[in-house]
Write a protein that binds this DNA or RNA. Structure first.
Length: 677
DNA sequence: TCAATCCGTATC
DNA sequence: ATACGGATTGAC
């Protein structure tokens, strides 16, 4: 598909001879379309959305054809498109508009966003897969790529409309009705503890599909995706959706992307990258557990899945659902501005479903039982776990993620340092010299080794496995397993066993956990992080949601003081109350999401240059600098939400001035940075 | 006065 | 990266 004829004479296409192209050059001052001539022989294939090759500044670069036009505003001569890479229209017009809006919001380049939005081409897959109206081919013999749902199944029948579980929520049935009728509905859904949330989301997608429209579902990790994938098969039948997993190989990823782009499926579910998936007649976007860090894209311009999906819903004028057991400040803001409506269960339904929650409080009394001496657990926690195990139920223990905090031991005799109050492991929080307890959070300023009297401490790593061993001794005869980064458990049976898990790696228990012990107070301790309390809350709600209802004996013990707002919110199961409180506090402090922040990271002179070039909106504040890694520093720019677009625009322009000057030192610009100090 | 060279800028 | 235009320099 090259535009050169034998002797190089090219004739422009008769109709719409101009192609507007986004070139793949990540320089801010080149972040605009460039016009090329379409030769007659490429006229047919040079459609909006195809990948092209063009000569740009003497080099052959790739790009996307954005649109065809009758003429160009460009004064000089236009070059011809060199080549159309393939006729596959991989950049959906709806996604192209979204990508531009996201580039603008995040002060980034369109081509960077398109790199995130469109997976790399895999020519063989393009050839294999067939057009929407042809029957599916058999998977190649010997190919193991087609193991998961949606890639090779034929169209299945949709299950009869079932509202079912949505009846538990006051506004639930009305929301599904709106989806089915194609009326725009925007919701923040607080899922009940024990809720089969994946099934509810699948039902929402099915309602949208009955109205003839498509759905995009984004979850944080592969395990959540697996649940959604199963639920979609259950509700929609086989072959109506694709699951886009970050772990897929390039061929399979592209194959599934093409199925979506060719409109062979009604629903796309996946991790982060699926937020860009092309879907015909988009009717609904869903994000589950929007507070999870994994929803933040680590590549420039660092867009967040929630913001991308909400922007997508605005541009496509479709429904949106921000969902989770916990509620983020951002979700709360959607409610308070009236953009979205709340979907929550009535108090009596909640009471029937929620586990009983108890804090260990200020009573660090250790159990008197012989086992407890080695258990090193507060007595309430130990008792609760023991009862659950006796009743034949599994117990979940949530412990801090390994690696964040080095535990400490005596510098002399290496005896692990224990909290004098609760005997939890002591750890060094941040750069502080004062150790604090991983379980109860108390600071132990004057620690003395009980074995040898030494006062100095040394760092020593104690991971989840060690915690598991200790717990094993506390509950003799019970299987203790760990679930963490390296080995994540999926589902465990209803039987007496203990699972020690790090946040986000908790398995799902059939019939629910009899007891959940929350020892993870790490996030609470790091006061420097703006989102510390919100993150603690999220981890606690997510783990507690895995417990049985209180009426069936489900208990949660949180190793913390009952007077803390986070603990109160958990006891009363009021994610909304906590989020409102949190948002009010951030308003007070002018912190996100009440205000918009951007961070600039780089060498001091580079940042100074950037700020000198930036025509920031009135009222923009500069905060910092704070030191960053290797001789770099970080400046924060803060504006009101109404000035956010102007700030992003100013930062992008400033970056353009610098890139046009070929500034040597890079500055990393992040709008809505994940951490602000 | 003209060519060779340098530098900055745009890149369709 | 490379190509181009305008300015600068140096030789006739």
């Amino acid at each position: 598909m090259t535009s050169k004829s034998a002797r190089g004479e090219r004739v422009p296409a008769q109709r719409l001879p101009v192609a507007r192209v986004c070139v793949d050059v990540p320089l801010a001052h080149l972040d605009r379309p460039f016009d090329y001539l379409v030769s007659e022989d490429l006229d047919e294939v040079a459609q909006p959305g195809v990948r092209v090759k063009v000569r740009f500044a003497g080099q052959l670069v790739s790009g996307f054809l954005l649109e065809r036009a009758e003429s160009s505003p460009h004064g000089g001569k236009l070059a011809y498109l060199d080549k159309v890479v393939s006729g596959e229209r991989v950049l959906d017009p709806e996604v192209a508009r979204l990508a531009r809006a996201i580039a603008d919001r995040y002060a980034g380049n369109l081509c960077d966003v398109l790199r995130l939005a469109v997976p790399p081409r895999h020519a063989r897959v393009e050839g294999q897969a067939v057009a929407a109206d042809s029957p599916e081919p058999e998977p190649e013999p010997g190919s193991d790529a087609d193991t998961s749902t949606g890639s090779d199944a034929g169209p299945g029948e949709m299950r009869a409309p079932a509202v079912g579980g949505w009846d538990s929520y006051a506004a639930g049935p009305a929301f599904l009705k709106a989806l089915e009728e194609g009326r725009g509905a925007r919701a923040v859904w607080g899922a009940l503890p024990g809720e089969d949330w994946a099934l509810r989301i699948a039902e929402a997608a099915a309602a949208t599909a009955r109205g003839g429209r498509g759905t995009v579902i984004v979850v944080a990790d592969a395990r959540d995706l697996e649940r959604v994938d199963k639920a979609l098969v259950e509700v929609l039948g086989e072959g109506r959706h694709v699951a886009l997993n970050a772990a897929l190989g390039p061929a399979e990823r592209y194959r599934r992307f093409l199925r979506a782009g060719r409109h062979q499926v009604a629903v796309v579910a996946g991790t982060r990258a699926a937020m860009w998936a092309p879907v015909a007649e988009l009717g609904l976007v869903v994000i589950w557990d929007d507070g999870d860090d994994l929803h933040a894209e680590p590549r420039a311009p660092y867009p967040h899945a929630r913001e991308v999906l909400l922007t997508r819903a605005r541009l496509a004028d479709c429904s949106a659902m921000v969902a989770g057991h916990a509620r983020t400040g951002e979700a709360q803001l959607l409610l308070e501005t009236g953009w979205a409506k709340e979907i929550s269960a009535a108090r009596n339904v909640l009471r029937a479903r929620a586990p009983g929650v108890a804090p260990t409080g200020d009573d660090p009394q250790l159990a008197r039982d012989p086992g407890a001496a080695t258990a090193r657990l507060p007595s309430i926690a130990w008792e609760t776990a023991r009862k659950a195990l006796q009743a034949g139920a599994p117990v979940l223990v949530q412990v801090p993620r390994r690696g964040y905090l080095p535990s400490v031991a005596c510098a002399e005799c290496r005896t692990p340092a224990r909290c004098p109050h609760c005997s939890g492991p002591l750890a060094l929080a941040g750069s502080r010299d004062v150790p604090s307890c991983r379980w109860c959070g108390r600071v132990s300023a004057a620690y003395t080794c009980p074995a040898c009297g030494e006062r100095r401490l040394r760092a020593s790593v104690v991971g989840a496995r060690r915690t598991a061993e200790e717990l094993g001794r506390a509950f003799p005869g019970v299987t203790v397993r760990t679930s963490g980064r390296d080995e994540i458990l999926g589902t465990i049976p209803q039987a007496p066993s203990v699972v020690v898990a790090t946040p986000g790696a908790e398995p799902h228990a059939e019939g629910g956990f009899g007891a959940v012990l929350l020892l993870d107070t790490w996030a609470l301790l790091t006061r420097s992080d703006l989102r510390a309390a919100e993150e603690t809350m999220r981890r606690w709600f997510n783990a507690s949601a895995l417990a049985k209802p209180g009426s069936q004996g489900g208990r949660v013990v949180v190793v913390a003081d009952g007077s803390l707002a986070t603990v109160q919110a958990l006891i009363r199961w009021e994610p909304g109350w906590f989020a409102a409180r949190e948002l009010a506090e951030r308003r007070e402090l002018s912190f996100p999401p009440a205000a918009r922040m951007a961070s600039l990271t780089g060498k001091p002179e580079a940042i100074a240059e950037m700020l000198a070039a930036a025509r920031l909106p009135d009222g923009a504040e500069l905060l910092g600098p704070v030191p960053a890694d290797d001789d770099q520093e970080r400046m924060l720019v803060r504006t009101s939400r109404s000035q956010a677009a102007a700030m992003a625009h100013a930062l992008h322009e400033a970056a353009a001035v610098r890139s046009a000057r070929k500034a040597a030192l890079p500055v990393r610009t992040e709008v809505d940075p994940l951490t602000i100090f």
